[in-house]
Simulated scan of single mutants.
Amino acid sequence: MQLSINVTNFLLLGLTQDPRRKNIVLATFLFFYMETLVGNLLIIATIKTSQALGSPMYYFLFYLSLSDTCFSTTVAPRTIVDSLTKEATISFSECLIQVFYFHLFGSLEIFILILMAVDHYVAICKPLHYMTVMSHQVCGTLVSIVCVVSCVHSLAQIFQALSLPFCGPNEIDHYFCDLQPLLKLINSSSYIE
């Protein structure tokens, strides 16, 4: 793997450079982030404290809420802080960490939604075998598998980013680090689609 990185910091241009609009961005992101946190933490607490919510659907819903909380935490707090500053910079390593966690929790949410669909399929199409097919051990194994697959997916994104030559501009026309905006910054003569 060829590592050619001359850029140490990135400048996040964000959603706007206008100070009044930055206040709107701050208020909007803060409101929705807090709503997401409160809603997901209430779901997590309710499922963990209730004895009646022990079915596989609630097991998957617990992990969906947990991954959604982590997913929103990868972007929203940084965006809120950046809307308070004049210039939002992020180091190369912080950018890669954000890409990793963004893809980790994003893919984890997708895979957990797939597991919930499988759970519903088994409950509807195989109701007599439901408790055998969707036992707690099977559900735990499925969640473990999707965690590993999500981690592998995220590592693949990081290795892809590390193999790219960042030698040019350092302005990301986005409000957080992701691969798509980063691809616009690489030395285009060495980039292969």
Rank of each mutant, 00 (worst) to 15 (best):
S144K: 08
A156T: 09
H129M: 14
I112D: 00
G106V: 12
Q137F: 05
S93L: 02
C125H: 14
Y101A: 02
V75P: 01
A88E: 01
V75N: 04
T141G: 12
V149G: 11
C139N: 13
A88G: 03
S107F: 13
E87S: 11
I158K: 01
V143I: 15
L104A: 04
M131I: 12
T89I: 13
H136N: 06
H120I: 14
V133H: 04
H120V: 14
L104E: 02
I124R: 15
V133L: 13
K86Q: 09
L104F: 14
V133W: 03
H120T: 15
T74Y: 05
L84F: 03
T141H: 13
G140T: 14
A161M: 15
I158G: 00
S91H: 13
Q98L: 07
T141W: 14
E109K: 04
K126Y: 11
R78P: 00
V152Q: 03
F159Q: 06
V148Y: 03
T132G: 11
F102K: 08
A88C: 10
S93E: 08
Y101L: 10
V75Q: 06
C151D: 01
G140L: 13
Q137W: 03
I112K: 00
S144I: 05
A123Y: 06
A156W: 04
A117Q: 08
Q157T: 02
Q98E: 12
I97M: 04
F92Y: 15
Y121R: 05
V148D: 05
E94M: 08
T132C: 12
P127C: 12
F92D: 01
L142K: 03
I114P: 05
K126E: 06
T74R: 05
H103V: 04
C95K: 09
C95R: 06
Q160T: 11
S144W: 07
I158H: 01
H153I: 08
L115S: 03
I80L: 10
V99I: 13
I158M: 03
V146L: 08
A76K: 10
I158Y: 01
P77S: 14
P127F: 07
L115A: 02
I90A: 03
V133F: 10
L104P: 01
K126L: 09
D119W: 00
E87W: 09
V133S: 07
Q137H: 07
R78S: 06
C125D: 11
F111A: 03
S83P: 00
F105A: 06
F105H: 08
V149L: 15
T85H: 05
H103W: 07
T132P: 02
Y130N: 12
L155S: 05
G106F: 13
V138D: 02
T79C: 12
E87I: 11
V133Y: 06
T85N: 04
K86H: 10
F159S: 06
A156Y: 06
V138E: 02
T141Y: 14
I114H: 05
L155A: 06
C125W: 10
L128P: 00
A123I: 09
V138T: 10
I90Y: 09
F111Q: 02
L155D: 02
G106I: 10
I80Y: 05
H153K: 05
L108W: 11
F159N: 07
T89C: 11
G140S: 15
C125N: 14
T79R: 03
I124G: 07
Q160S: 12
S135M: 09
C147T: 10
